[in-house]
Nucleic acid binder design. Structure first.
Lengths: 143, 143
DNA sequence: TTGGCTGCAAAATATTTGCAGAACA
DNA sequence: TGTTCTGCAAATATTTTGCAGCCAA
């Protein structure tokens, strides 16, 4: 996150307390929070913070490579401060999103027709599954 | 689509003219339309159709395996009547979405830690690239 | 005939924007 | 001191819902 702070300063961006609080919450966070998650958490320290500030900051972070926008959940966007290439697995039971650190770029062959028409820039794999807790609930009948 | 119509009837669902028009528009459509695209198109034939009907029908189709919801575009959902497993490539220039018919399930190995915790149900690969037209615009300076 | 469907409108949700005052650099 | 940022409110966009009347089966 230090790097990001340096990047912020280098671009004439300001490190306000609110922004720092958002950065601190995101740093090392692997829970893939939504804008609302971030808002609620930062609100505890800065009760007057507004949604607009959260969205503005996320926008700025996106533009500076500080967070990735995750679209695996059709209901809302999630944000991921882990910006080196990786993938995700989502539990279809509880919607928990977990990181998958594997590089599939070398093995994801594409049809020649596609390769003829597209210059490939990247890939992202979403896995769907049932986590341990949700399998438990399913079989044992526990709530 | 015949199969789908049979499925509709088998579940006590009704084939209204509006639904048939939506089904007809979707059948064989590989453009990955949004709800609005569908609404606009069907409106030409049924000027009184409402957005609610489009969303209701899409909801029913989703529940019956008639369409897949595509979340590759953070701005809005797209719908895909091709329901056998496949993947997508999106042009980062014009946002066109194309189908990729390759089965990667056999090669997408997951870390043992993930396999320990999740029962894997499926996967979906998104590719990002630049289509021919968008590369042209980029280099040649044409429009 | 009748229960599911349509269309309208309003509501719910998520995200963006305009702007006056505040505050970081 | 000047420019960017904040917070509020309103606007926008997408999707969902309530309901009276309609109509496919």
């Amino acid at each position: 996150m230090e790097k990001l702070i340096a990047k912020y300063k280098g671009k004439g961006l300001r490190l306000t307390p609110q922004r720092l609080a958002i950065l601190k919450f995101l740093e090392g966070n692997t829970r893939h929070p939504t804008a609302e998650d971030i808002f609620k958490e930062v609100k505890r320290e800065y009760p007057t913070i507004s949604f607009a500030t959260v969205y503005n900051t996320l926008q700025t972070l996106k533009e500076n490579g500080g967070v990735l926008e995750i679209t695996i959940d059709p209901a809302r966007k999630h944000y991921d401060p882990t910006t080196n290439p990786h993938h995700h697995i989502v539990c279809t039971g509880c919607n928990e999103i977990r990181d998958v650190f594997v590089n599939y770029s070398g093995i994801l062959r594409l049809p020649s027709q596609i390769l003829k028409e597209f210059q490939i820039l990247g890939n992202h794999v979403d896995f769907y599954g049932l986590c341990k807790d949700c399998r438990k609930g399913q079989k044992g009948g526990g709530n």
